[in-house]
Amino acid sequence: MRHTISVLVENKFGVLARISTLFAARGFNIDSLAVGETEDPDVSRMTIIVKGDDRILEQVEKQLNKLVDVIKVVDFGQAQHVERDLALIKVKADKSNRSEIMQVTDIFRAKIIDVSADSIIIETTGDEEKIRALLAMLKPFGVKEMCRTGIIAMGRGGK
């Protein structure tokens, strides 16, 4: 099972290393990890995508909580939440297929942020599924490079 875990941590030197050391030492697999400041500059939020069975997830959550610099751990699990990932995709493009690529980009409500004689950079935001679908459409043109921010997530509603 894929889980989206949100970890609030003290915004201190070495905290990222503590988390990654923990995952490595315990043999937990990270699919994606995104880190950034929150509304409180002393606190950072890490969004971690982990795969594993219930027993592993229970350990992941407990082990994270045990770290002194971790303030709060939330496993979104089945709870209502939104997820977003941002991807930059560089596609081979020349005048023969540029307009076709632009059409695909439009359909996915993605943006073209750079054009050159032989390539285009597309920026897209969405959940994993949308990015995968767009990528599948762009593949036949030749994807030269892709980079992603990693998934960030937030619970829905007032909580």
């Binding site: 030197f13 070495g14 050391t21 002194v68 610099d69």
Partner: peptide, 16 residues
């Protein structure tokens, strides 16, 4: 030192 001892301590600090 804090890097080397991280997995074998409950917590560690570098005082800057």
């Amino acid at each position: 030192t804090t890097g080397i001892t991280r997995p074998v301590t409950k917590h560690n600090f570098l005082v800057r």
